[in-house]
Design a protein around this nucleic acid. Structure first.
Lengths: 212, 212
DNA sequence: ATGGTCTTGTGAAAAAAGTCACAAGGATTT
DNA sequence: AAATCCTTGTGACTTTTTTCACAAGACCAT
């Protein structure tokens, strides 16, 4: 691999979580060595793409043998920042917000939902397991208290921009946005849009192509 | 636009839902004409990209003027198959499944959740508004009854492959998969993976790049 | 050691996606 | 009806991503 200013393609980064998942499974089952071919099949891509992706991070494999599962897993965890625990705030304690709060899959990825926020007084004080619901006005205070890293926006579209501004205001620089709007935030803040309707509409488009 | 075998880029298709959304808003507010520049800003891309995307579907705009909002909206609806109503089955009546069932945003996109399925006998017979919970064994029958088009998989990872096979078996050829696994299905079946953890891990990666 | 068999790592080529810049047209004003 | 002002549509170019194919090791058997 060439050193110095290797720019890692966005497309590569977006596949790392998939690699992580496959490696976790292999590790769990006790597999210690895996070939690019086998891994790639599980992920649903070509082996050369997998090798190319990994090559951006240096020689992670062993020629003639494959990749050491636990070593590669550790590397990918590091790259994805899964060593440091990420603490999520979920703003919006509606159906989606509470569903996310209840999702058990986060923990094994180093992610933890620490607090829910809402504007609706009747919801304040509720508990979802360990996770409490606080008034949105407490965002700043609770961010400090729980060392929150990521603001998850799970409010109606009309309120999303305002909520995003509050999140930025109190110091979040990562936003996970489930509202179907493009958020206007400072450049330094990273926004990831998780627009469910987009996904299903693409599916719908494919149905029209298939059915006739 | 050149005719005959114009292949529409996947990237273009994936942006159409965003255009749809912006156009819907404009239409709702009574705007009748919009320029590529204005639309693109709202979507967060460049105007030339927007024009390029639309050009794949023929001359949809008016030079010197812009795009007719309702005409373009109708066109995009057509392309995305939003004319035909899509009926969703949600398999897995857990937190995620019921949250999806309760989401109000589908209807305005021509999507409708018609039935929930689960294997847990205690859940059978529940009603979420109009939407009933049926035993998974009724999938085939209810698919016919409700003309279900899209199978939404909202079950634990371990069960997902099996559920996908059932869905394929009873005739679904579009699967919206929320389980964090790569599904093995016949080529003719279109699968859209909606892996939430992938999104937040990419976010996590960006946090590591930003913080130091 | 040596030879054979693996599988990685990676330049080079190809394909896909995105950007630029401007001619082509349509609307409006004079 | 000519001149001017717009904004689209698009060919050419650039950048990004993917694929190809093979040299460079690493392990294993003899």
């Amino acid at each position: 691999m060439k050193d110095e200013f290797v720019v890692i393609p966005k497309a590569t980064i977006s596949r790392l979580p998939l690699y992580f998942r496959v490696l976790s499974e292999l590790d769990h089952v006790g597999v210690t060595i895996v070939s690019s071919e086998e891994m790639a099949t599980k992920v649903g891509i070509t082996s050369s793409q997998l090798r190319k992706d990994l090559s951006y991070f240096g020689g992670l494999g062993i020629r003639g043998t494959g990749y050491d599962v636990s070593y590669l897993l550790a590397k990918i965890k590091e790259i994805l920042g899964m060593n440091q625990r990420r603490r999520l705030a979920i703003i919006g304690a509606g159906k989606l917000g509470t569903a996310l709060a209840g999702y058990g899959g986060f923990l094994q990825h180093g992610l933890e939902v620490k607090a829910l926020f809402d504007i609706d007084e009747t919801k304040i004080g509720w508990k979802f397991g360990e996770i409490g619901v606080y008034h949105i006005s407490e965002l700043k205070r609770r961010k400090k208290e729980f060392s929150l890293d990521i603001a998850t926006i799970a409010v109606p579209a009309a309120a999303a921009q305002q909520v995003a501004e509050m999140a930025v205001e109190v110091g979040f620089n990562a936003i996970w946005n489930f509202a179907p709007v493009r958020l206007e935030v400072p450049e330094s803040v990273y926004v990831r849009n998780e627009d469910l309707v987009v996904g299903v509409l693409i599916l719908s488009h494919h149905l029209t192509r298939i059915n006739q």
